Simulated assay, not measured.
Amino acid sequence: MYPPEPWHLRGQMYLSIFLIPRRDLPELPPVLAAAVRPVTAGGRVAVGAAWVSYEPGGVLHYKELLSAVLVHERGRPRVSITDIWVDSVASREGGRNLWGIPKELAAFTLDAENEPLVDATITAPEAAEPFASALVRLRRRLPGRFPLGFTVAQALGGQVRRTPVRGRSGLRAADVAWRPEPGGPLGHLAGHRPVLSLAITDFWLVFGRSAEERARSRERTTR
């Protein structure tokens, strides 16, 4: 089983933004591709890739690696997750069934014991070698805490599922050396360097809507 939405989550995220040629992007599911368009600049699309450690204090604690595309829906910005792995069955099942997030299981190393260095690897089940790794070097901490807010758009049950995410976090500058295997599931990132990397520190997130919020949303769409 998995917790009902919304999920209240806490932890650390190491995020990089890449600009990838549109032709190299993974395809979106047809129902989603009919509703959203990638945000492009000079034929390139913004792709975010992040290692995440969800820590005790939230409804679940587990590790995650994801890749997501910045898209828009009639001008409204959205984030669509194309590839994602977790080391929690509850997270996998909840992500798939609640929001249409295509989570798969994997084994992780996410070692932050030697700060300012964070060493990350991910290995597919029954594989001998990692299909991606990264070395994060944390740098200057920005003063204060910052709001987080975006909408995730995924395909679920033949429809587009739009899920709000909001929260707050600290921020640190970071350098991230990514090492995805060219023939692996994140091969579209191979050979590209991030244009921006950040550590999103000590965050708290609310992922999804309460039952009351979902009821109000249904009322608005039926008017």
Rank of each mutant, 00 (worst) to 15 (best):
V160F: 13
V160N: 04
R161F: 13
R162F: 15
R162L: 05
R162M: 02
T163A: 02
P164Y: 01
V165C: 00
V165S: 00
R166L: 04
G167E: 03
R168I: 00
R168M: 05
S169K: 00
S169C: 14
G170R: 04
L171C: 03
A173P: 05
A174T: 05
A174L: 06
A174P: 13
A174F: 02
A174C: 13
D175Q: 14
D175F: 12
R179L: 14
P180N: 11
P180D: 10
E181T: 15
E181Q: 12
E181K: 15
E181C: 09
P182F: 14
G183F: 08
G184E: 08
G184T: 11
P185V: 08
L186C: 07
H188Y: 12
H188K: 15
L189F: 13
A190W: 15
G191H: 14
G191F: 08
G191W: 09
H192K: 12
H192W: 08
R193I: 11
L196E: 10
S197F: 06
S197G: 09
S197N: 06
S197E: 13
S197Y: 12
L198I: 00
L198P: 00
A199F: 01
I200M: 08
T201P: 05
T201I: 03
T201L: 03
T201K: 01
D202T: 00
F203M: 02
W204G: 08
W204I: 09
L205I: 04
L205P: 01
L205N: 01
F207Y: 08
G208Q: 06
R209C: 06
A211L: 08
E213S: 03
E213M: 05
A215M: 05
R216K: 04
